[in-house]
Simulated scan of single mutants.
Amino acid sequence: MNMLTAYFDEGAQVAVELANARSPFRRGVAVEPDPTASAPLWSLQTALRAILDADEPVAAATGINALLHAAAAAPMLEADPEGRWRLHLHSPHADEISRMAVKAATGLATLLDDDAWHTVKSCAAERCGDFFLDRSRNASGRYCSRTCANRVNARLHRRRH
């Protein structure tokens, strides 16, 4: 796998994890918001949640572009200590929240560019507000985890018997 592709893939996963931090339920359990989260982090998590919840790629693209603009994304090539060229997508003076925003936004932008937005899904389990990236071969995944799938299947089994 190309290192740049891995970076973008990791960025999409970071976006999902940050958005899930604002989920009201995690795998069937109510979650209280983190009182220690800073206002910029809260804002980033909320923005990512809105992007992932977008029904249309146009709405997602608008949100992604707004994130990139707000984080002052500035692609730049720099040589590392070994002399290899590395692409940095954020300003060299960016703070941690801005770097996370750029990484998450570029990961999601790559999903749109690859026509893979359909792989971003919301868990189908009741009382789970998590998003996930469906990496199954035929993109048929419905649950964010085995925990949610087992909970739903157990409930269905109890109803039948």
Rank of each mutant, 00 (worst) to 15 (best):
E78W: 00
V31C: 14
P35N: 05
P40F: 04
V58M: 10
V102F: 08
R99G: 07
H90S: 15
M100D: 13
T110V: 08
A105G: 01
T46F: 09
P81C: 00
E96L: 15
L87T: 09
Q13H: 07
A74S: 09
A37V: 02
D95E: 13
A104G: 01
F131N: 03
H88K: 15
S136K: 03
G28Q: 00
R159S: 11
C123E: 07
V120L: 12
L133V: 13
E78C: 07
N2R: 10
F131P: 05
W117F: 08
N153K: 13
F25L: 02
R159K: 11
A54P: 02
E32R: 10
D34T: 06
R155M: 07
E82F: 13
A47N: 03
F8L: 12
A73V: 06
A60H: 00
P57F: 01
R159P: 01
H69G: 09
N153M: 11
R160G: 12
A125S: 12
R160H: 15
G83E: 06
F132E: 11
A154Y: 04
W42R: 11
P35W: 01
P75Q: 00
W85T: 15
H161W: 07
G63P: 03
L112D: 07
K121D: 11
S98H: 14
L52N: 03
A70H: 02
Y143K: 04
R158F: 03
E56L: 06
S136C: 06
N2G: 05
A101M: 00
T62E: 08
G11R: 02
E56Q: 05
R146H: 14
I51F: 05
E56G: 11
L48W: 08
A105H: 02
S43H: 09
F131H: 00
E32M: 01
T119W: 07
A59K: 09
Y143E: 07
A70V: 02
V16K: 08
L18G: 09
L87Y: 06
L77G: 10
F132A: 02
T147R: 14
P57W: 02
N2D: 12
